[in-house]
């Protein structure tokens, strides 16, 4: 469960002393097994929020509890471990190592854990099967289509069996048909019990989530909608 209260984040623009208030007091609660869309225009603060939820960025003020743990008390190592085991990321540009094959990319999060080669192989194969690309395991990522790359990114995100999947514009670089397939994949992962948070500016993508939250200028502008 994610509980965020009065979260604030300010950036200082490089090369000047000008400050940007990316988040100006956000309150959000995301329950387990939810599928939530966070909508907003470019620069609204949605990616900042996702990075904070994913323990990538720190915040200046407020409270963030992840599964009952006060995130501000975590050391860098503990935050990294939590990120590795509980959170999976899916990004618009896939963030894959293009020169390597699918299997190597998917196994990356497992290299930070104490697992044997056999356990790593089993987990990778399971993740690839879950996203229906087990036949591509030895193909180089650079040779895959956009939809296939996003499936690899999703496989990498779920390989450690995390509770949360955070997706930042996951269909932003895909055509309509492939977007639909990827959203279907997210829905099935949600049905299996994963909590999914999707950042998007696309209303069609947001409509496929069970709940929508709209952000503008670092604030929530629409009340959290009732779960469908």
């Amino acid at each position: 469960m994610i509980e965020i209260r009065d979260l604030k984040k300010t950036y200082t623009i490089k090369g000047s002393k000008e400050k940007v208030n990316a988040l100006r007091g956000i309150d959000i609660t995301v329950n387990d097994r939810e599928m939530v869309a966070i909508q907003g225009r470019s620069g609204a603060g949605k990616s900042t929020l996702l990075n904070i939820i994913g323990l990538i960025e720190s915040y200046d003020d407020g409270e963030y509890m992840l599964n009952g743990i006060d995130v501000s008390t975590l050391s860098d190592g503990k935050a990294a471990k939590l990120r590795n085991q509980r959170i999976g990321f899916v990004l618009q540009d896939y963030s894959l190592l293009e020169k390597y094959n699918v299997k190597t990319n998917v196994m990356l999060p497992l290299l930070f854990d104490k697992l044997s080669s056999r356990e790593i192989d089993e987990k990778v194969n399971r993740a690839l099967e879950a996203v229906n690309i087990d036949d591509l395991s030895h193909r180089k990522v650079a040779h895959l289509s956009g939809g296939q790359k996003q499936r690899v990114a999703i496989a990498r995100a779920i390989v450690n069996d995390p509770s949360f999947i955070l997706a930042d514009e996951p269909t932003g670089a895909l055509d309509t048909k492939t977007s639909g397939e990827i959203m279907e994949l997210f829905r099935s992962l949600n049905d299996e019990g994963k909590t999914i948070i999707i950042i998007t500016h696309d209303p069609i993508v947001a409509d496929q989530c069970k709940r929508k939250i709209e952000i503008s200028d670092g604030r929530i502008v629409s009340p959290e909608q009732v779960e469908k």
């Binding site: 994913g54 990538i56 990120r83 590795n84 990321f89 990356l108 930070f112």
Partner: peptide, 15 residues
């Protein structure tokens, strides 16, 4: 870029 990907996937600063 690779450092960012590794940290996203759970590598600590030390790693």
């Amino acid at each position: 870029e690779q450092n960012v990907i590794l940290s996203m996937l759970g590598a600590s600063k030390r790693k």
